[in-house]
């Protein structure tokens, strides 16, 4: 186990290094991407541009620039090109919003996804199954941002049942925090509920025909016990993997669309602003922050996988 973890951590560091390097290359390769020219403005002299370039270290070889930037990121001294704000503190500022959004939505989509999948599977072929299948298909076919715009229009703008976007910190007013986040949570969760429901339904249906389930039936166990202890234990394993990776992506700035539609100034929103300004340092920060979550969670998922499924436990 220790060797397994050591290998994974080493792999994580390698992936993060390469990811950061690619982000750097993408923004070096693009023409007109020279930040010095943009910062210097329209009436800049060649000397201005040179001095800015030198100040930002842009006259160094690109691997030196990359190293300096990553070093600045880890020591917390990295500042944005466009407004000179500290990247790490900006990400910290957005973190509570993104955490609130993704944890709440994660609970909703995991809970309802499992519920919907199990109901569909045990009533396979009946009306409830068909209805769930249709709804799940529509759910996975909807663009998240469009659903968000519609919900906001119908429930917050036409009727003021919900607040019209924005975020209230949990520490300031828990009730308002919850109230403001209901629509974003639902919006983000719908796609995943449909997807998880479909995956779980087919997993359960596959598992039900396994020999060991027949054995359990033959032993005279109650259908409920068979479903919970025998069928679900196996069928939920792929869901754990999916959840780990999806949750990491949402946490790491993947909720950028939902955050944009509902004016939630989280990490995704910050990334979007940075991209709009072609501001490399924040983008580097957010991408590494997102990749960190994804790599971390995929390691956790592997550990959880080994725990849940003895068949693949590393020797």
């Amino acid at each position: 186990m220790a060797a397994f973890l050591f290998r994974r951590v080493l792999g994580m560091i390698l992936v993060l290094a390469v990811v950061s390097f690619i982000v750097y290359l993408v923004f070096i390769v693009i023409p007109g991407g020279d930040p010095a020219i943009r910062i210097a403005g329209r009436t800049a002299t060649q000397a201005n541009i040179f001095s800015i370039r030198h100040k930002l270290g842009l006259d160094q070889p690109f691997y030196v620039q990359w190293y300096d930037m990553v070093k600045a990121l880890f020591t917390g001294t990295l500042v944005s090109y466009s407004d000179q704000t500290n990247v790490v503190s900006q990400i910290w500022q957005g973190l509570p919003v993104t955490l609130s959004l993704s944890i709440g939505a994660g609970i909703i989509w995991l809970g309802f996804g499992v519920l919907v999948g199990v109901i569909a599977a045990v009533t396979a072929g009946k009306v409830s199954d068909r209805l769930i299948t249709v709804l799940a298909l529509i759910g996975v076919s909807m663009p998240v941002f469009w659903l968000g715009i519609l919900l906001r229009y119908a429930l917050a703008e036409q009727n003021s049942w919900f607040p019209d976007g924005g975020y209230v910190p949990l520490t300031q007013n828990p009730a308002q925090w919850f109230y403001h986040l209901i629509l974003p949570w639902l919006t983000l969760a719908v796609l995943f509920i449909g997807f998880y429901g479909r995956v779980l339904r087919s997993n359960v249906l596959d598992t039900i025909n396994e020999d060991y389930v027949r054995t359990a039936k033959a032993k005279g166990l109650s259908p409920r016990r068979i479903l919970v202890r025998h069928v679900l234990r196996t069928s939920l394993i792929p869901i754990v993997t999916l959840f780990g990776l999806d949750f990491a992506a949402v946490l790491g700035g993947g909720a950028i669309l939902t955050e944009t539609v509902y004016d939630l100034h989280g990490v995704g929103f910050y990334a979007r602003t940075a991209i709009g300004n072609l501001d490399l340092p924040p983008l580097m920060g957010v991408t590494l922050y997102g990749a960190l979550f994804i790599v971390l969670f995929s390691t956790l998922v592997d550990v959880a996988y080994a725990y849940l499924d003895p068949r693949i436990r590393p020797a």
């Binding site: 993408v26 023409p31 992506a249 700035g253 957010v286 991408t287 997102g290 990749a291 994804i294």
Partner: peptide
């Protein structure tokens, strides 16, 4: 794994914005 490690939408936006400014030459 490397492509996988980027959040799809972040990677897409970063590349899309970077490339749409002056194109790719």
């Amino acid at each position: 794994d490397l492509i996988w490690a980027f959040p799809v939408i972040l990677l897409g936006i970063a590349l899309g914005t970077a490339l749409s400014i002056n194109g790719f030459h």
